[in-house]
Design a protein around this nucleic acid. Structure first.
Lengths: 219, 219, 219, 219
DNA sequence: CATGAATGAGTGTTCATTCAT
DNA sequence: AATGAATGAACACTCATTCAT
């Protein structure tokens, strides 16, 4: 998918994480177009020219923000599903809790909102993001749901649809926090929000013969 | 004797709506900052100067897009809850189906994405939107859920959280369509998607003693 | 100098004086470039399009303002010098008083300021103004001074320089009123100002043997 | 050890003065509104964007032009009156000669015309100019005239009016040069013009018993 | 004659990008 | 490597001018 290695690639790895962090924050807060590189530089504590030592252009900075923002967590979670031994309901709980702790509740939590906002202006990045992040995440969910169905824990489901239905409330929490939630519009407590979500959802997908044991997030 | 409307007159009265429609499309597609007024004008088939005959500034145009985009549907749905006589599950189905038909599946479906993207740059509009749209929508959901609980149809729920959990998948469908979905990334069929959502969700909130009758969207 | 007669010319004579008056006021107040035709039209109580029924362009309006503003008073004063029988000092007093009453103190008093401000942008109008207004005015002054010298009332003077020296304070009063004076900066009383000017000036140009009889403006 | 100034550094410090000089010329020539920042930049030999490194807006540039244009000469002349030991007539001659050499005959000579033209559009600048320039100038004149009266050199005068009467011809010379005079309309020689003015004026204000010694400008 | 909706060239201002230091 | 002064293309906004009514 990505070029394996190149001088540019090597330099990219040396790019100060501060620049990317500053850019992510600004992009999430103002959007790509409304973010001025001056502000990114100021927030990172460097001069505007320094940005160009590490990134060829504003577009390149955006791409790096998206790619660097997800690479570190791409592999996480896959092992989670493999290694899991308990109930599938617990696995589902763990997946969601992990996503929230590793992404949603970190500074990476703004990436989904950013990607949604800028997909139209960066279709190739959107495609990259879809294939490398979303599809992989859906795969984890798919295997988890299939596992639960196979083991008689979950009832028969339209899995492809269920994946999105289940993940939507989690995504929305992250999106909300970086949009209207940041404007002082009503805030929810993630803990109880996810608890309610899992409670309803696990109830809704449980096999009729199975006994659902309600449980909040064990974070 | 009705005053004869000249073509020019007719045009003048229709202009604002045409301009707002064009602006909404562009704003949703490119974001506020990346949208050029020249493009909005061109899409509406007028010159740039004409925009300024009807809107004082780009900001004012944005505000009008949001406000005009929701005013027409503000009252809708309230009567729906009042008049409903059947089961609360059906009411929930109807509400979601109505939202999708009146908003999500129309050109207004991009407003949520737009509002999410630009909330940071227009906090006062975000607040306006929250108070006049989101809170009213949540109110409809709240009354519906409360009705179901009171009538023993739904089990006890943390209503405030449930509202968002239930609406998130619907919102996400509209958002997706105007972001990554528009870039060719995987498309879902809204019909079956909502059917799955309702199936799982109604199952998840049904009172243990109640019998849930699965039902797709009756559109 | 000007085209004698033409359809355009005939129409010009029918031009509403209100338009020219409104334009003069705006031009004097804001300058040519900063004056919007919308404002001129509004002040004249007509629509913007109507201006174009009478004037081909903003430039044409400006030219008309200058030309129409001075034509009515071009002939005045010439007869004054011819007919005068008293002392040359009195004639000088009368000329200045007449200029102030007919021009300086009317709405035409802004023309000098306007011409000064816009000479650089309308050199041909400036030349026209110079030749048809300023030179004629200087001629009146020259004849008056020459008359006084010839009659032994005034001492020998560098007449060409004296003309401007004598008229400068009068002009400045009109200019001041339409510039800083209109901003609330210190105002002078024209009566006593001119009295002082005439007193000093007549004293300054009187022939040593002559007796100067101080006299204010007899308005 | 003086820090070595790089050409770039030297340029940076000289920039504002270069820009202001270019702006003053353009403003005087065309007026504020008709002056394009592109032209100011071109005349200063920089790009349009560079202007904005030093001035926030066109308005700010105008304000700076006025303020910087007069600050350097604000103190001059005050000492002149204090130190003067000769006749008051000579002091008056010196004041006028100094004004002409330091302001009227330099590139600052356009400021009065500019201020007159734009007072209506910049009332606060006009007030600033009036209080900080005009009032101080009038003060010098007032003290000079009072000095002459007290010493019996000048006759009783309405001093406040006399100040303006005396300065008007000097001002008009500067104004003329930057308006109609620049269009090829009749030019006067400042030397003989001021000589005539001083001759007439000193004669006009001399105490009857005093002997006026005519004298040209000793520049 | 009169209107005012519509136009589009022009200008103030911003900001990504470059490069001399 | 790092800076920040300088650039100029791009865009929001204005307003003289036109023309259908």
């Amino acid at each position: 998918m990505l070029p394996i290695e190149s001088p540019r690639q090597r330099r990219k790895e040396a790019r100060p994480a501060e620049l990317l962090a500053a850019a992510l924050e600004m992009f999430v807060e103002k959007g790509f177009a409304a973010t001025r590189l001056d502000d990114v530089a100021k927030r990172a504590g460097v001069s505007k020219g320094t940005l160009y030592l590490y990134f060829d252009s504003k577009d390149a900075l955006f791409k790096a923000v998206i790619q660097e923002g997800i690479v570190p967590v791409l592999q996480q979670g896959a092992g989670m599903v493999e290694r899991h031994t308990g109930s599938s309901a617990d696995l589902l709980r763990d997946l969601i809790a992990a996503w929230w702790q590793l992404i949603g509740n970190t500074h990476l939590g703004g990436v989904p909102k950013l990607m949604i906002s800028e997909a139209g202006n960066f279709p190739e990045i959107a495609t990259y993001y879809y294939e490398n992040v979303i599809l992989r995440g859906r795969d984890l969910m798919r295997r988890t749901l299939q596992r639960g169905i196979d083991q008689g824990e979950f009832r028969a489901l339209n899995i492809e649809q269920a994946i999105d239905v289940i993940f939507a409330p989690v995504l929305m929490m992250a999106i909300w926090r970086h949009s209207l939630g940041a404007c002082g519009c009503g805030q929810h407590d993630p803990e109880s929000y996810f608890a309610t979500h899992l409670d309803m959802m696990l109830c809704g997908i449980a096999h009729p013969s199975a006994t659902v044991q309600p449980d909040g997030m064990h974070s």
